[in-house]
Amino acid sequence: MSAGEPGRPLTAGEVAHSWAADVFAEEGLDDADRLRLAFGLLDLLVEYWVTCEIRFAHQGPDGPLPADVLWDGYRRRLEADGDAETLTYSLWVDWFEDRETAAGAFAGVLGDDIERLVAEPSEGPLRRARRVLDCSGPVPWPVKEAAYRAAARLPVLHAALFAGLRAGYHDLYGDLEPAAALALLDRLELPADTEHLAELRHVLAAGHRNHHRSPGAWDEAVRTRG
């Protein structure tokens, strides 16, 4: 119930803001169990704020949290059927856009096992790979390039890889190397009418790294295509 409005049930967001931080002060539990409890709260509430508190605890004075438990929690939920928007948004805006955490986060959710995933693909890990690639635009190019090349060997990942490349160009914090990204793009098996495919190829061929550094380049690509 809400203390301010007796009788009114708390929303999931209010519960998250009120209680998620307290999970990491729970006595009688070690850091791994507190983290597992936080993930359980995330499963119950499906609220982005829970992921924020997980990150705060990881980067706070009592952190870091156990990396194996942290990234296993993300991986298993990214592999599950159903909506994973809370997790992918968390990865994108909190872990991947932060240069101090991007490498560890990307390795933990995909980079460390992409070779095995491509060699022995199965439904859950492929679902995870698609979701991570789709939101990986801000990950520094040197961190993600090897995983991108591995993913390119598996056509079922090509659409998600294209989304990652496109975000690497358009996102404010996006990162790519134009020549390497173009070579990778040319390997993808995509429908010829894939939206923005021609424009992305055009700006990469012209050597542009990011839409925000060359704001007129994309419009020029659109005009050229037209």
Rank of each mutant, 00 (worst) to 15 (best):
D186K: 11
L161C: 02
A192T: 05
A159E: 13
P142H: 07
R201T: 04
A181W: 01
E177D: 15
R166L: 15
H212Y: 15
L185C: 05
V156F: 10
A167H: 12
A152Q: 03
R153Q: 14
A180N: 10
H208L: 08
D175G: 02
T194N: 09
D171Q: 06
L165A: 01
R187C: 09
L200D: 00
E199S: 09
L197P: 00
G207R: 06
A206Y: 06
L190R: 04
L157C: 06
R149Q: 14
D171P: 02
R213E: 10
E177Q: 12
P140N: 02
G168P: 01
D175P: 01
L188I: 09
D171Y: 09
L176N: 08
A163N: 13
D171C: 08
L204S: 09
D186W: 04
P155C: 06
L165Y: 13
L182E: 10
L190K: 03
P142F: 10
A163G: 07
A160M: 06
L185H: 03
A151H: 11
A150M: 06
L154S: 11
E189S: 14
H196D: 14
L190T: 13
A205M: 02
H158M: 02
H196Y: 15
R149C: 11
H208D: 13
P140R: 01
A150E: 14
H196G: 03
F162D: 03
D186I: 01
L184N: 11
G207H: 09
Y169H: 04
G174Y: 11
P178E: 06
R166A: 13
N210V: 04
G168F: 06
G174H: 11
A198N: 09
A150R: 06
L184E: 10
A151L: 03
E177Y: 02
D193G: 09
D193N: 13
G207F: 11
A179D: 14
Y148G: 10
K144Q: 13
L172Y: 15
H211M: 08
L197E: 07
L188Q: 05
A167W: 08
G207Q: 08
V156E: 15
L204C: 10
D186M: 05
L161A: 01
V143Y: 13
L157N: 10
A147V: 01
V143S: 05
E199N: 12
R153H: 15
H158N: 04
D175V: 04
H170Y: 11
W141N: 05
E199D: 13
V203I: 02
A179R: 05
A198Q: 07
L184P: 00
K144L: 14
L172I: 07
P191I: 00
L188F: 04
L182G: 04
A163Y: 10
L204D: 09
E189L: 12
P142L: 05
P140W: 07
P140G: 00
V139Q: 06
R201F: 03
L184S: 08
A183C: 07
R166Y: 15
A192Q: 13
W141Y: 05
H158V: 13
Y148V: 00
L172G: 12
A205C: 08
A152L: 03
L200Y: 11
A146E: 14
L182W: 04
L184I: 09
A180Y: 01
A205Q: 07
H196T: 00
L197I: 02
K144I: 11
P142Q: 05
Y169R: 01
Y169L: 06
Y173W: 05
A205H: 08
A183F: 06
A150N: 06
G207V: 08
